[in-house]
Simulated scan of single mutants.
Amino acid sequence: MYKVLMIEDDAMIGDMVTMYLKEEGFHIIRKENGMSGIAAIPQFQPDLILLDWVLPDMDGLAICRQVRENSSIPIMIVSMKNKIVERVNALGAGADDFMCKPFSMHELIARAHALIRRAKMYPSMNQLQATQSEPRDVNEVEVPKTAAVSAVMDKHDKITLNINTRSMSVYGEIVETTYSEFEIMKCFINNPGRVYSREDLLQTVRGFDSFVTDRAIDVHIANLRKKIEDNPKEPKWIRTVWGVGYKFVRM
């Protein structure tokens, strides 16, 4: 049974969503403000967070950023806000999906299943780090590291992508990426020097993001630069090709 944490102060919406999700076999609890919602995460261990943007005590995006500091739990923003820039801001804060109120319960349930399925398919970076730090059995057989796809950007082997675990390491340290960020980085590393238009990158991530736009691609690029560049404001690896798009450069 999948567990859903709903952080929503509107009792009518909360009761309706709770009823439908329970009928679909979900275990759902609802918290009416941000502080109680955040406090419930460690004990409840939800598979999905449904998060209202406007709450009595906290901004939903602030909650999203706080959760993203140490967790990759899928987050779906549910809000009356419906402008593209607001959806992009939600993406930039770490949300995985966005639904505007009022919404179809059938669509909400379908998206919830999709988000949880993707999260279960690939282990989180925290899980990978915990696994790597566990003591090894003396009889454990070493598995050859041939499954990794590496990009040797300099003598320090700056970036490594592992396709099996969908993890990215920067200078040997695992770095959290969203599904779309990983797909974009995979394209860049497999085709250094190739110029990708925003439309090219949209086609790459379509099917991972539910609300991809040109502006969303720019947000993904900005987030990737923060994760791999020494100085994101003066990028050396992910370059902007003005009027066209972006390319990955090996120095």
Rank of each mutant, 00 (worst) to 15 (best):
M185Y: 01
K120W: 13
H106P: 01
D209N: 13
A148R: 09
L201K: 02
L128H: 06
E173I: 07
R166V: 09
I217F: 01
R215L: 14
G207V: 03
T240Y: 09
R136E: 14
V149Q: 10
A151T: 01
S169A: 15
N191G: 05
E199C: 07
K120G: 04
P144R: 01
D214K: 02
R118W: 05
V143T: 11
H113E: 13
F182M: 13
T131M: 10
A114Q: 08
R136I: 14
N139W: 12
V195S: 14
R194C: 09
L202V: 03
Y196Q: 05
R194V: 15
R118H: 08
N191A: 13
P235R: 12
D214L: 03
R239F: 05
A148P: 00
Y122N: 10
M121L: 11
K226F: 03
H220I: 00
T204N: 09
H106S: 07
D154R: 08
K227D: 01
T178G: 10
C187W: 00
A119E: 09
M168K: 09
A222L: 02
Y171C: 12
A114R: 03
R225L: 04
P192E: 10
S180A: 15
A222C: 08
V205K: 04
V205A: 13
V175L: 06
P192D: 10
H156P: 00
E173D: 14
E229I: 03
G172F: 00
G193V: 02
I238A: 06
K120Q: 15
R206S: 15
N223V: 00
P135G: 00
Q132F: 03
E181W: 04
A114S: 12
K226M: 10
